[in-house]
């Protein structure tokens, strides 16, 4: 099922929109994920991560636009999409009176696996997620981390080429997190395309080949972690103190394109500046030329976290 040419994206989102009444949960989103790639979704609460993932998983329909899994439209060919897609939602769906083995067995059967193929898949998955010792345990009694593993196991039971994981690391302890990261890296190595969402940036930074920053349903920035970190290097937090004329300084700064997030602090003005050190030197020179009595000029390069805060604005719909 993974016999697709390397240039064809396994996930392609094209101009996707999803409105709930007046709420624009997803707006004009487009990106591609290729085989063997892990794509990270970062965004604040209510950004539209779950909504767009549910559309990809054929659980919801776009208002406009389309999305494709291995070349098949999620709107027109959901049956073909489902065969090659595993979706792990941010909740765990548990059946009562079912143990780990039976749970996996049920989903394996539901994906049409029969006989030795099915038992083989169940054992492979239990081995992969290290659940083999818990086969007979009722799933109601599993711990959060164990449930999360079982959920991942269920997602990959039919060996899908595309995995969509909605906050898989939520609620996991540091060790389980590292293990999950290893599992995902292994899946990507086996040629699967993985779309993963998280609030925790450092976590994504380590496993994602590319990340997309999303807020209010819009994809604000897409790129490899290095590209975005590179952007982090050019963005710095600057703090300036002048002897007098702070008001005039703020007006002067506001007029410039390369400056944002201006805040007046007790003894000066703080803002973010984009452009890297040479441009900063330029800025300082211009400040002096504009006859500001600069007594303090401090700058600090931003972390990925700061970039996130800079790119998104924390608006909630």
């Amino acid at each position: 099922m993974t016999s697709n040419p390397p240039n064809r994206p396994l996930i392609e989102v094209r101009g996707l929109h999803r409105y709930f009444g007046k709420t624009k949960a997803v707006q004009d989103m487009s990106f591609k994920v290729f085989p063997g790639e892990v794509f990270g979704y970062i965004g604040p609460n209510g950004a539209g991560k779950t909504t767009s993932m549910r559309i990809l998983a054929t659980l919801d329909e776009p208002t406009y636009g389309n999305a494709f899994v291995d070349g098949f439209s999620v709107v027109d060919d959901p049956d073909r999409v489902r065969r090659r897609l595993g979706f792990m939602p941010d909740y765990f769906g548990a059946y009562q009176n079912v143990n780990v083995y039976e749970y996996l067995d049920f989903f394996a059967r539901s994906y049409g696996l029969r006989g030795a193929q099915r038992t083989g898949a169940i054992h492979y998955v239990m081995d992969f997620t290290q659940l083999d010792k818990l086969a007979d345990k009722p799933i109601d009694g599993l711990s959060k981390g164990m449930k999360q593993r079982l959920c991942l196991g269920r997602t990959m039971i039919h060996d899908p080429a595309v995995l969509i994981l909605d906050e898989p690391a939520a609620g996991l302890d540091p060790r389980a997190r590292i293990e999950l990261r290893e599992m995902i890296a292994l899946l990507a190595k086996n040629g699967k395309a993985v779309l993963i969402s998280s609030h925790i940036l450092t976590e994504l930074a380590e496993i994602c080949d590319r990340v997309g920053i999303i807020e209010q349903g819009k994809l604000l920035a897409v790129g490899s972690v290095d590209e975005i970190s590179g952007r982090a290097e050019t963005i710095s937090k600057v703090q300036v103190r002048v002897l007098d004329g702070t008001e005039r300084l703020i007006t002067w700064l506001t007029a410039r394109d390369d400056i944002a997030d201006i805040v007046q602090k007790d003894r000066g003005v703080a803002f973010t500046h984009e452009g890297g050190p040479p441009k900063q030197a330029e800025l300082l020179k211009q400040l002096v030329q504009a006859e500001f009595a600069v007594v303090d000029f401090a700058s600090k390069t931003k972390s990925l976290e700061d970039v996130f805060l800079h790119v998104t604005e924390g608006r909630v719909q």
């Binding site: 659980l59 909740y91 548990a94 059946y95 989903f107 539901s110 049409g112």
Partner: peptide, 13 residues
């Protein structure tokens, strides 16, 4: 209610 319906409906059944 048990959140299993979604999981069931995206299988190939």
């Amino acid at each position: 209610e048990d959140n299993t319906y979604d999981l069931l409906s995206i299988t190939t059944l």
